[in-house]
Structures are given as C-alpha cells and as structure tokens.
C-alpha cells in the first residue's frame, strides 16, 4: 500500500523518468541487480571487445594447438591454435545482434496480431489462431533448418526467420492480455463513440497490454538466443571463421575429455547471458507488477 498523500501529489512523469523508476526498482532486489549487471556486462563486452581482443580471432597457428590456459592464452587455445579468450569475448556479438533484432520483429508482429485477434474476436480470430496453433505444432528447428538451407545463413534471412518463429508464441500472450482489458468499459466506451479499430488498439489497448508483451519479449529473447546458438551448433548459424559460442561448443565438444577449456569458455558465456536475460525479465515483470509465476497466459 502506498501513502495516499504521495499518490495525490504525484505529477505525471515523462516516459524517461518512468523507465528510470522501473530500472531502479529492478535493481533494488538482488536477483534483479545480478541479472541487470550480467546483461549490461555482456552488452558492453559485445560492443567494445573488438578494440581490446588480444589476438586475431581467425589467426590459425598449428604450433599452438590445444594449449592449456596460461598467462599468455588465458582460456587456452582451440584445435586450430586460435586464442579461446579472444573468440569467447567476440563470440556473443553475432548472437546478440541477430537475436535482439529478431526479438523486436517477434514483438512487433506477434504483439500486434495478438491484440488485433483479441479485439476483433469471432471468425477472424478463430482462423488466425488455428494457423498460429498449426505453426506452434511444427518443431521450429526443422522449419528453421529448411529455411536456412533454402535461403542461406545470412543475417537478412536469420533475423526475420527467428523473428517469425519466436513471435507466434507472443501472439497468444498478447491475445490473452487483450482479453483481460477488452471487456472493460473503457473499450466498450471507445467502440460506442465510434473509434476505428486501429485507434482503439493504439490508444486504449496498447498502453494496458504493453507491459505484459514487453516482459514476454524479454523472455523470448533468451529463448531465441538459445535457439540461435543451437542453429550454430548444428552448423546453420554463423559461418566459420566468425567466432560464435554455439559453433565453438560444437567444434570443441569432441575434444572435451582433454581440452575442456575450449568448450567451457563459450558455455559459460552463453549460459551467463541467458541467465542474465532471464533474471532481468523476471525482475522487469515484478517491477511492472506482473507475476510470471502465477500468471502464465499461454
């Protein structure tokens, strides 16, 4: 419960101040603080790593094959004699970029379609949702492999393809969140005034479902990251010699028994990023007043 006096004197805040409020609430809990710290660390690392990477990530040196970690090569070297530390700090760049833009695409199409279906209901809703269900029932990795092998593994293919496959889950969440507000009188009132569907979506529904969709988008981001790394692991993500965690794990796993360092470093990189995003998303949800543990609208 809040001090009512504070509520009554509260002035409307700029969206910047609101965002700051949310972030400071997130950071006030240990789990949120850790999540945010990991995420920020990874983002800064991804942006700045090319400037301080100690070695060339693609410099192959047969004489340095599978060296154990040392003061020269902090994380050791891989089977081609490349520095694992260099490749690890650079390995998140592609994954983060592709999945970040992929998540935005997923949020946009999934969120808007979900809200639209929730609003219009009836037959259109039925048809769209059955199509979404049909897509949900296809193992995404099969479909992704098909797309990638047909169209190639370029960024321009991967971003929209990932965005599409991870957006269909958001449709359901956005639709459910819309159903929560759609029966409220302020929507009925807007309908009775004769506003267009677009205006109702934009003005009345979006501000009320935005939080739920954003949180869902953050969770999708971490799943997409895992998905993208799986693709790389299978050899359909980034192409060598670009460093990528999924690819690095795939290349080094056969040698795990005697060169564990080559596989541990990318694993720690990938899992810490995913844990960071998950913790951040949970803290984000709590700061916005959505409890994911009790409310899973999928």
């Amino acid at each position: 419960m809040e001090n009512s006096k504070d509520i009554f004197n509260e002035k409307p805040k700029s969206s910047f101040a609101k965002a700051f409020d949310v972030i400071s609430t997130m950071a006030s809990k240990p789990s949120g603080f850790i999540g945010l710290a990991i995420l920020v660390f990874h983002i800064i690392l991804a942006i700045t790593s090319p400037w301080f990477a100690p070695y060339d990530y693609k410099a192959i040196n047969p004489s340095l094959m599978l060296n154990a970690p040392s003061s020269e090569f902090w994380f050791g070297t891989d089977s081609l004699g490349r520095d694992v530390f260099t490749r690890t700090i650079l390995g998140g760049r592609t994954a983060l970029t592709i999945t970040f833009f992929g998540s935005i695409i997923a949020l946009l199409w999934g969120g808007l379609l979900g809200i639209f279906c929730g609003l219009v209901g009836g037959r259109i809703d039925d048809i769209v949702m059955r199509i979404v269900d049909a897509f949900l029932s296809i193992p995404w990795i099969l479909a992704m492999l098909l797309i990638v092998s047909l169209l190639g593994t370029t960024t321009e293919v991967l971003i929209p393809a990932l965005g599409f496959f991870y957006g269909k889950g958001i449709v359901r969440v956005a639709r459910a969140a819309t159903h929560d507000v759609i029966a409220k009188d302020f929507i009925v009132s807007a309908k009775a005034r004769g506003h267009s569907n677009l205006s109702i979506i934009w003005n009345e529904i979006l501000p009320n479902v935005r939080d739920a969709i954003l949180v869902e988008g953050a969770m999708r981001w971490s799943w997409m990251l895992l998905g993208f790394s799986s693709l790389s692991f299978l050899g359909f993500g980034v192409s060598p010699p670009t460093p990528d965690w999924g690819l690095m794990i795939s290349n080094a796993r056969g040698l795990m028994s005697f060169a564990w360092w080559a596989v541990i470093a990318p694993i720690v990189g990938l899992s810490s990023l995913i844990i960071g995003i998950n913790l951040t998303a949970d803290a984000f949800a709590k700061a916005l007043g959505i409890d994911r543990s009790t409310k899973a609208p999928v």
């Binding site: 409307p12 409220k184 009188d185 302020f186 009925v188 009132s189 009775a192 005034r193 004769g194 003005n203 009345e204 501000p207 009320n208």
Partner: peptide
C-alpha cells in the same frame, strides 16, 4: 449519430483507461 448518443457506465474504475491522464 454516434456523437448524438453517449454512454456513462456504472463503474468509473472500468470505464476510464487507467493508463490515460
């Protein structure tokens, strides 16, 4: 016609968008 007929609802908590000033 839409303008000529307006509605006022029972519960103002529900009839006003909580995210609008």
């Amino acid at each position: 016609d839409l303008r000529s007929i307006q509605l006022i609802f029972q519960n103002p908590d529900e009839s006003l968008n909580p995210n609008h000033t």
